[in-house]
Design a protein around this nucleic acid. Structure first.
Length: 310
DNA sequence: CGCTTTTGACCTGCGC
DNA sequence: GCGCAGGTCAAAAGCG
């Protein structure tokens, strides 16, 4: 919880309800296939603070950026072949509120530059906003202003075939919630970046149709380097994605196609502890490696802790 | 001791 | 207007 500080001066919400899929127009929403980005999405990555080399970006294969929630359901259906399960983001877009802001410093204001990225967001009010949660309604500070609508940060999602739910992407995440998803036996986990200045969040869930597929949705932009390689944030990203996504994604071809799992089972996912942490601001650490640290941690046994159903 | 995870409760918003 | 489901909070527990 400390994260949410009001560090986002500019935070403003513009509420946008319109989400766009990258590369495709609104119509694409209807087409399941379009939910996934193409490689052009590289730009998106950068928007989120990830500077992946084009190659790696490509490996993402598919990730979808969506600003609108509706996209998700289909997204899920897309790869899974069915729609129901996906609850993937059903309401997700609705708003969680919290918009996490992403660039306190404002240095990275990429979000709006890319057409693919939703314009919405940019920043969020510092407070968790919404205050929805367990907070006593009495506390005004956490309560959203009346007229104010929740706005979502730009988001994008990608699917990977992996045994681990939580893919290492070079950043440290703190799990702040888990919910059962309707029509899906798999719970959805909510993570927020541990960096106090960063309010990026991510949601991880598995496809109900294909348990091996992990749907990861990022919301917001990191305002710091990845923890793994403070000095070369890029590397960490690369490593993370390469090690984890590549294998899986590399096999993606077309949206409609089936995914094949390539990730070899390995150790357990590296816990956040493994990473040097935080933004690299104060720590420098290094693993000079070119090797993806994450790899090892990658496929471990991530067993979803208890599934909660409401 | 500090940080992360778990988990139940609460809040918000959408759809009917 | 109501109900449902998603999203978030925060206390408690667990772990290194």
């Amino acid at each position: 919880m400390e994260d949410k500080e009001g560090s986002n001066p500019g935070a403003e919400f513009t509420s946008e309800s319109s989400w766009t899929l990258s590369g495709e127009g609104p119509d694409s929403v209807s087409n399941s296939v379009n939910y996934f980005f193409d490689m052009e999405s590289t730009s998106i990555l950068s928007e989120f603070g990830w500077d992946l080399p084009p190659d790696h970006a490509v490996e993402f294969g598919r990730f979808a950026e969506f600003n609108r929630t509706e996209a998700m359901p289909e997204l899920a259906g897309n790869f899974s072949g069915s729609q129901s399960c996906a609850a993937a983001d059903d309401h997700g877009a609705r708003c969680s509120g919290s918009g996490t802001a992403s660039n306190p410093g404002g240095s990275a204001d990429v979000s709006t530059s890319n057409p693919l990225v939703s314009s919405s967001s940019s920043e969020d009010p510092p407070d968790k906003s919404t205050g929805s949660g367990g907070k006593p309604p009495e506390i005004p500070s956490k309560v959203r202003k009346k007229g104010q609508k929740r706005i979502r940060q730009p988001r994008f999602a990608f699917m990977t075939k992996s045994e681990v739910d939580h893919l290492e992407d070079g950043y440290r995440w703190r799990k702040y919630g888990q919910k059962a998803v309707k029509n899906s036996p798999f719970p959805r986990s909510y993570y927020s970046c541990t960096n106090s200045k960063c309010t990026v969040k991510k949601r991880v869930e598995r496809s109900c149709e294909d348990p091996t597929i992990v749907i990861t949705t990022y919301e917001g932009q990191h305002c710091h380097h990845s923890v793994a390689f403070p000095r070369g944030g890029f590397i960490s990203h690369e490593a993370a994605f390469t090690g984890q996504l590549t294998p899986a994604v590399s096999q993606f071809h077309h949206p409609g196609e089936q995914l094949h799992r390539e990730i070899p089972p390995s150790t357990t996912q590296s816990q956040s502890h493994q990473s040097p942490i935080d933004a690299g601001e104060s720590r420098s650490e290094p693993e000079p490696t070119s090797e993806p640290p994450t790899d090892e941690g990658l496929l471990g046994d991530i067993v979803p802790p208890g599934i909660r159903y409401r």
